[in-house]
Design a protein around this nucleic acid. Structure first.
Lengths: 240, 240
DNA sequence: CGGGCAGGACTTGTATGGAAGCACTTGTCG
DNA sequence: CGACAAGTGCTTCCATACAAGTCCTGCCCG
């Protein structure tokens, strides 16, 4: 997926740190609610506070980190409201994409998707691998509709949703069920049955969403209570 | 609409500068392609480069500013691809919202929307005022559907689209036609005719979009040619 | 024993000074 | 006259120092 724009974006320290932190937040390697100290992080990375600070500002802009002036910075807790928003947004976009499928589907893309589905069904699939396949699958559907770029926009708003999904899958790896739903969507789409594809997609996405509700009842501490919730400074153990 | 979170976000210099710059970019007060100098801006605002720089980083994260390391920062040109994405996204979300309208509509909201429409039809309406009303109208529809928060998410990705729309309206103030379309959507929505509302919405949004295509042919210098386009340091006085 | 106040240890916010890099200008040479 | 190269002035990047605010702790006094 290497974009040419990436080569344009010359390597800077803050960008590297941003990418690294973002990854750690999205994979829950940095737990929701965890405190992030500019000083500590800078020291552990061997750079000054400046690039660290700036990368935190970028993450805050993404909604993945909350910065409380003179108090501290924290990995934002998963906000149920934001998860719901992202869910609504995603559903709207993916359904619209299915409605927009061209009559002639890109053969190579279809082949890629088919292979993707095969790998999803592989027994003993690692969770992280399933996640990557899942991401690629949905992204591929948007490609089919010619609205690939919209995906990156959705992806930006999808941070909270993704973290929540990950939480859900960590509990009980129901990836097999999801893989079946993926297959259903795909088959309907390639056969030109838009309505069935849309219905299947709706069912799928809502199943994902209800999974999240379940996990929320199970691990409430990872979710935000109020928007102005209290940040707890202790329990740091951030890096490694 | 004042969120409690806003009181939480204590006033910092960088936040103030960010808001201010963002406004200037969205209203085209800062022209697409214009160079922004940290030094110059800091001097003119009477603060150090740090908060200015950090606010630029925030804007870059929004996609409204491009930062080229060791070269300069520029108001990003309106990217047609991003405009199209935002258009697709917006259409998907607003149509989904209309599909999700509850049986019983919030009476107060309905009243607000009705009044909004009345003001849209006022003769000799200032362009900026129409824009504000337009924004409030679409936002109100999402409120009706109970997905208000999704609007803020869309709004974040809507920067390029809004700038393009503004360009379009500056050319020929066709606000009357848009106001009529708004009314059509509204009437259909309150009468419970979801299908007609969706059709009208689709027509409306696509009219807006085609307007943008027209203006692009007319003022190509405000749009990005390629994604890795050349930032020209001179030629600042794009607008006026 | 309990309440209040002061101090210390943290946090992020801002200011400032060099370092590194790119673009353009100018001078020099073929 | 043209081409190449050093130089100049700009940019953003990063490091560092200090300022300002918050939270917690422990002492002191009632």
């Amino acid at each position: 997926m290497g974009r040419m724009a990436d080569s344009n974006r010359r390597a800077t320290s803050r960008r590297a740190i941003y990418e690294r932190l973002r990854q750690k937040v999205l994979t829950l390697d940095l737990a929701p609610g965890a405190a992030i100290s500019e000083n500590e992080l800078a020291a552990s990375l061997g750079v000054s506070r400046t690039p660290v600070r700036e990368s935190l500002i970028m993450l805050a802009q993404d909604g993945l980190v909350q910065i409380f002036p003179k108090i501290g910075s924290f990995v934002s807790r998963v906000d149920p409201a934001q998860v719901a928003d992202a869910q609504f947004l995603r559903e709207a976009v993916e359904l619209a994409a299915l409605e927009d499928l061209p009559a002639e589907l890109d053969a190579q893309l279809v082949e890629e998707l088919r292979e993707n589905l095969t790998r999803q069904r592989a027994p003993g699939l690692e969770l992280e691998d399933f996640f990557a396949l899942d991401e690629a699958f949905h992204q591929g559907l948007l490609r089919l509709s010619g609205h690939f770029n919209a995906w990156t926009t959705v992806a930006a708003a999808k941070g909270h949703l993704d973290r929540a999904r990950r939480l859900g899958l960590y509990e009980h790896a129901s990836s097999a069920a999801f893989a079946a739903q993926h297959a259903e969507i795909f088959e309907a789409a390639v056969s030109g049955d838009t309505d069935r594809a849309r219905t299947a997609m709706r069912t799928h996405l809502r199943a994902v969403f209800s999974d999240i509700e379940r996990i929320r009842a199970h691990s409430p501490h990872l979710f935000a209570a109020d928007s102005g919730s209290v940040p707890v400074r202790r329990s740091v153990a951030v890096w490694e």
